[in-house]
Design a binder for these strands. Structure first.
Length: 408
DNA sequence: AGTCCACAGGAAGGGCAGGCGA
DNA sequence: TCGCCTGCCCTTCCTGTGGACT
């Protein structure tokens, strides 16, 4: 073995000048001291939760708003403020993201997570759910207190396990002797409320707040605020801020997207040896974010999902769906994808799943945004899904080369 | 108006891995 | 060790569906 140099391989990285002052301020989970353009929403949530400080039970609250409209950051900000004042007032706040896989994506895991937040641990599996409910009740009811639970991305848990857990949570107060619980549901899905059971709907939506998307000017303000904390002076020009804000405004006023663009553009610029960001870096960042998202999602999918996607890409490439029926066109349909998938499985000595299961895998790929699958009817030639690939060329090439290496 | 197709998608349940308490 | 519980992934069985065709 030959040592190239005596100095540590990371020395040059540490010594290199950087444009970042504090990179964590450019991430979406950073809570700034002042939240811009959300005064009304903060005031409404504060007014809803304030009775807890006088020992009354606050109303349950439902918060709606598309991605990156500040719902989570506002709730966490209000919680942090509440905690400051409520130190001796027996108010406890719990925040759980129901979309976090293996953390709170089932009724059992959600309860386990809530119990953990209250300072006790339960096994990851093995206990009956009613035992967990009892443990949770006991822990909450240990002393006179108001517990406020924020359930972020509550719709994804609902889709998986139904609304029984919401019903239980909203009815829990009748079981408690000393304490009381308030639930805050947070969701991106504006139609979610309609899918709830009437009894859950009425008790959970005692108060409702809708977060509107940010416009380009508001996004500019938010970026400017974060740039002051996150970047050195002169690292980001006004043109770059405008561009990031405009791109994110096109994406339904998504502040998270704007911050990601800025941070990734900064990383790209720094790697190319620059100490400031230009508009090209932002373009590259936009492409990189999409590319990373798609390829990372594909790489983490189970083997059969990857095989289904491989089948779709292969058929899409051929421009020929291979079906021989009367209905002749170039659209990809479930039946053709299933045939191609079976072919891939047999070539790779994998036991193929049933069409019913493959149908679910296609739905899952659709939900992840990797493909789009629309149910169509072809009259007497049946009902099926029409599948298309919305990926851009570079993402498609990346995914294709990964899947070609993986399967024969 | 009735028939027919090719699925979609709901419901029920099997099999497996893993934890807990007796 | 055993019985019972869980989550997860999957199959089997079934009903429902929209629109072209007869």
């Amino acid at each position: 073995m030959v040592l190239v140099s005596n100095s540590n391989i990371f020395t040059s990285y540490i010594e290199k000048p950087t444009m970042f002052k504090d990179k964590k301020t450019l991430t979406s989970n950073f809570i700034p001291l002042k939240i811009l353009h959300r005064n009304n929403e903060i005031n409404q949530i504060t007014a809803t939760l304030a009775p807890a400080l006088r020992g009354y039970q606050p109303n349950n609250l439902f918060i709606y708003g598309t991605c990156g409209t500040g719902k989570t950051v506002v709730v966490r900000f209000v919680f942090s403020q509440l905690k400051e004042v409520a130190k001796s007032k027996n108010v406890k706040t719990l925040y759980v993201n129901c979309k976090l896989k293996k953390v709170a994506d089932t009724e059992y895991r959600l309860l386990a997570q809530l119990i953990k937040e209250l300072g006790e641990t339960v096994p990851d599996t093995g206990l009956p759910t009613d035992v967990l409910y009892r443990k949770f009740f006991e822990k909450v009811d240990e002393k006179k207190q108001t517990v406020i639970i924020a359930l972020d991305e509550i719709d994804s848990l609902f889709r998986k396990v139904g609304d029984e857990f919401l019903y239980n949570l909203t009815r829990i107060n009748t079981e408690l002797k000393k304490s009381q619980i308030t639930t805050i549901g947070i969701t991106n899905d504006l139609s979610f409320r309609d899918s709830l059971d009437q009894r859950v709907k009425s008790s959970l939506s005692e108060e409702e707040i809708i977060f509107k998307p940010y416009d380009a000017m508001q996004l500019k303000d938010i970026l400017t605020q974060r740039i002051k904390q996150g970047f050195n002076e002169n690292a980001v020009s006004a043109d770059v801020i405008n561009k990031c804000a405009a791109l994110a405004a096109q994406e339904h006023g998504d502040a998270r997207r704007a911050l990601d663009l800025l941070r990734v553009a900064g990383e790209i610029a720094e790697r190319s040896g620059s100490l400031s960001i230009n508009e090209n870096h932002v373009d590259n960042a936009e492409e990189k974010i999409d590319l990373d998202r798609v390829t990372e999602t594909v790489k983490t999918q189970p083997k059969h999902s990857q095989a289904v996607l491989h089948a779709i890409i292969k058929l899409n490439n051929n421009g020929d769906n291979g079906h021989s029926g009367k209905w002749v066109d170039s659209r990809l349909l479930t039946g053709d994808v299933f045939e191609s998938y079976r072919d891939i499985c047999s070539k790779n000595s994998i036991k193929a799943l049933t069409q019913r299961r493959v149908s679910d895998l296609i739905s899952e790929l659709d939900m992840l945004g990797i493909i789009t699958a629309k149910v169509i009817s072809k009259g007497r030639y049946g009902r099926t899904r029409e599948i298309t690939l919305p990926m851009n060329n570079s993402a498609l090439e990346n995914v294709k080369s990964f899947l070609t290496n993986r399967f024969n």
